[in-house]
């Protein structure tokens, strides 16, 4: 019994020694079979400025927008190593909501195999395949999405992006200065699959170890939704009464799906045990 205790003490000392080595900034090979956590922080902005609800931002379409809501779904996270090998986060737990109104900016991934990751891949919204599998596959994600204004109820889908506020149009761009509401509800419907995936390089390796959590700091640019590769002018999308612009269907959703493939960039990666970003 005594000798067994001694062995355990020896193992403990050895493992402590190994652990102390792994906190070396130069890094070390991860121990096989171990895992750690990864945190992603989504920093919302508008064309390089910080996004603040209630502030106004003028885009290249000559329209000035005041955001009152900016919420989106990110999903299906994959971490990719330098050799191209991938770790796919369990799909049932891989749906998250980032919400500027409630201050929900992080995605926390648990039990990621220890390793050095060079790229991340994720989806914007809910993939059609998953959606068709119904609530079984989504667990209680519908409840969470409903609480965050991310469900449609007149049809049965998820809003991938919910961006609302008011806008005015520069008279030089053919508008008047009346403030009108705008509502952008990006999503799929039974005719169009608007789910898209993005793959982003990490400027620094994200080092996942037991007890060591990399924090991946992303920037999300709300401006690209309307002012990305293809422009969408709100004043060309007014309702019949001309009182507000709503973008919820049709060609605009396909445009937004493609524009938002450039919505995210990785700004930097923090390695270590801290939770700063």
């Amino acid at each position: 019994m005594k000798s067994r205790l001694k062995n355990i003490a020896g193992l403990l000392a050895l493992s402590l020694f190994i652990n102390s080595c792994s906190s070396d900034d130069n890094g070390s090979a991860p121990a096989d079979g171990t895992s750690g956590d990864v945190e992603l922080f989504f920093d919302n902005g508008v064309a390089g400025d910080a996004l603040m609800l209630g502030n106004s931002y003028t885009n290249s379409n000559g329209e000035t927008l005041i955001f009152e809501r900016f919420t989106y779904i990110v999903s299906n996270f994959v971490l990719i190593k330098e050799d191209g090998s991938e770790f796919t986060y369990p799909k049932n737990e891989s749906y998250f909501i980032i919400n500027e109104e409630t201050g929900q900016f992080t995605v926390h991934l648990e039990n990621v195999p220890a390793g050095d990751y060079k790229k991340i891949k994720f989806g914007i919204g809910v993939d059609q395949q998953r959606y068709l599998q119904g609530e079984t596959a989504q667990q209680s994600f519908w409840d969470l999405a409903f609480a965050n204004n991310m469900t449609w109820t007149w049809s049965t889908g998820y809003r991938f992006i919910n961006c609302q506020g008011t806008f005015t149009v520069d008279p030089a761009h053919g508008g008047d200065t009346t403030s009108r509401g705008f509502m952008i509800h990006q999503g799929s419907n039974t005719a169009t699959d608007n789910y898209r995936e993005v793959v982003l390089n990490l400027p620094t390796t994200a080092r996942v170890r037991e007890g060591e959590m990399p924090n991946i700091h992303l920037k999300s640019d709300a401006n690209v939704i309307l002012d990305g590769d293809t422009k969408i002018e709100l004043h060309h999308n007014l309702n019949g009464a001309g009182t507000a612009a709503s973008i919820m269907a049709g060609e605009n959703l396909i445009t937004i799906a493609n524009n938002t493939k450039k919505m995210f960039t990785v700004d930097h990666v923090h390695n270590g045990a801290g939770t700063h970003h």
């Binding site: 959606y131 068709l132 609530e135 109820t153 049965t156 039974t190």
Partner: peptide, 13 residues
């Protein structure tokens, strides 16, 4: 109008 494509989700409407 085809507002839903899922037998499991359509009751939401």
């Amino acid at each position: 109008d085809g507002a839903s494509s899922s037998l499991e989700m359509l009751s939401i409407v």
